[in-house]
Every structure is written in C-alpha cells, then in structure tokens.
Amino acid sequence: MGRLLDRYIHRKVLARWRQAAQSAADAAPATLRTQRDEARRLRGHLDQLILEADGQLMRPLIGSSQFPKPLGTDWYWRPDLWRGPLPRSGVASAPRKVTMDQHVSLFHDCRLSEIGIRQTRNTRDNDLAAFGLSLEVFGFTGSFLSLTVDLPVEATQGFSKQHLVRVDVHAEAERPSSIMARLNIQHGPNTDQVLRPLDISHTSSVADFDLAHLPLNERRIDKVWLDLIMDNPAMNRIILRDLTFCRHYRADL
C-alpha cells in the first residue's frame, strides 16, 4: 500500500511541475518568483541524489565474476578478495605472514616491516572487479615478498596436462617494477612449478602456464596455488586492480 501511495504522490508532483513549466510563459511575476525558488530548492536535492547515484552505480558490481575468457574455458575464477568486502580491510605493519582471507596471504622475510596491505574499492570506468588490493612498501631489506593465492578445490577437478592455465593481472605501480608469477601444482608427494614474468607497465598482463612438459600425476593432484613474487619492492606502491584465473584446453596440433 505504501508503494502505491508513493507512486501516486510522485505522479501528482510530476504533473504539477510539468504544468508549471508549460504555463511559465503566461504566469504572473509573483507566481514565477515563488515557483523559481521552490524549483531551485528541489533541484539542489535532485542534483545531490543524481551525483551520489551515478557514483554508486558506475562502480563495478560487487560479487561479479565476469571477465573475458579464452574459447574452450572449462573453469574460471576471480578470488573473493576482488569480488566483495573483507571483514578486515588491511594491515598497516604487516608481519611475516598475513592472511587476508581463506585464499590470499602475504609472505615476506623483512625484519623491519614497513609494509602495508589493504583492500581498496575500484572506481574506474574500465574496472571489472569491485575491489583491488594495494601493497605499499617503504624500506625493505628482506630477500622476498610474495602474495600467495590458493586456488579452490574445483580447480583441481578434471585437471590435466592438456590444460593451459591463464592468469590475468590488472596492476599499476608508482615506479617501474616487475612481478614473477609462479604456478605450483602439488600431486602426491611432489610439487611442480611453472614460472612466468608479468609486465605491469601495461594495464593488463597475462601469463599462460603450459603444463604439457610437467611430470604430473593427474589422478593425484591435491592442490594448486599461485605465488606473485615482487621484485625490488622497496619504496613502491602496487595496486592489483584485478586478478582472474581460467583453465582451458590447448588447441589440437
């Protein structure tokens, strides 16, 4: 009932202002002055509403899993950190291991931690992920800094040496930097790795991991994870705007 009444009132208000606009040319000056003052007050509220609504609706949709995928993709995934808000958005002085959520963790071996990690909201027109991950590093005297992403169990189901695994990273950095992407596959007591460079000087950097040469025991694949290893991270700010995975069969030769 309340919604019906709201719609009725809305129609009556629209009709009133439509009539006022159509009759403005013949209205008396006193009437025009009153209507102008009322319209200005109303326009102020409407402009504020439109501005806020545009800002909210132009942002990437929370929970979205949509992104471009190669033909033949049979599994794809965007980690939750890039899809929705975390209970804890970040850590100012990161210890040697920081668990952001069930899939994403940060590791380093720097004694004096001048490292901050924080989830941010994406707002650019070309962003597909709702959130990003900001990594700020000041002094760094350690030997490694890496972000680890554990792929879900679904990624191991049907996994074979005929697959290519694609990782697409949308990143930006305050100063030139490079990232090495290492895909790790645990099968039984063994773990095999494939290493690929990522060039974050471009908005999007894609790494394709070919598994054909690996001595995988396809029936015993237990775990798959990705390490993003930051090279020379000191005095830099790196924002991972999006991170996506997909698995597809290679083309027949």
Score class of each variant (00 low, 15 high):
residue 94 A to I: 04
residue 214 L to M: 11
residue 245 F to Q: 01
residue 184 N to Q: 12
residue 34 T to F: 05
residue 224 V to C: 10
residue 193 Q to K: 06
residue 209 F to S: 02
residue 120 T to L: 10
residue 129 A to E: 04
residue 196 R to C: 11
residue 24 A to H: 06
residue 201 S to A: 13
residue 208 D to N: 11
residue 71 L to W: 07
residue 141 T to W: 08
residue 1 M to T: 11
residue 78 R to E: 07
residue 41 R to Q: 14
residue 6 D to A: 15
residue 190 N to C: 11
residue 108 H to L: 03
residue 215 P to V: 07
residue 53 A to Q: 13
residue 76 Y to S: 15
residue 126 N to E: 14
residue 49 L to K: 08
residue 75 W to M: 04
residue 146 S to R: 08
residue 166 R to Y: 05
residue 179 I to R: 02
residue 133 L to R: 01
residue 234 A to C: 10
residue 126 N to T: 09
residue 140 F to Y: 11
residue 49 L to E: 13
residue 35 Q to W: 12
residue 213 H to W: 03
residue 70 P to A: 14
residue 225 W to K: 04
residue 123 T to C: 14
residue 130 A to I: 03
residue 249 Y to F: 14
residue 114 E to C: 12
residue 55 G to F: 00
residue 103 H to L: 09
residue 22 Q to Y: 08
residue 195 L to A: 07
residue 134 S to M: 08
residue 151 L to E: 00
residue 235 M to I: 06
residue 11 R to C: 09
residue 2 G to L: 13
residue 83 R to K: 14
residue 219 R to C: 04
residue 34 T to I: 07
residue 187 H to K: 05
residue 28 A to Q: 13
residue 133 L to I: 05
residue 2 G to R: 12
residue 72 G to V: 06
residue 121 R to V: 14
residue 209 F to V: 03
residue 149 V to T: 06
residue 225 W to I: 08
residue 252 D to I: 09
residue 105 S to M: 14
residue 70 P to G: 07
residue 100 M to H: 01
residue 37 D to N: 10
residue 219 R to T: 10
residue 223 K to G: 01
residue 45 H to P: 01
residue 7 R to H: 09
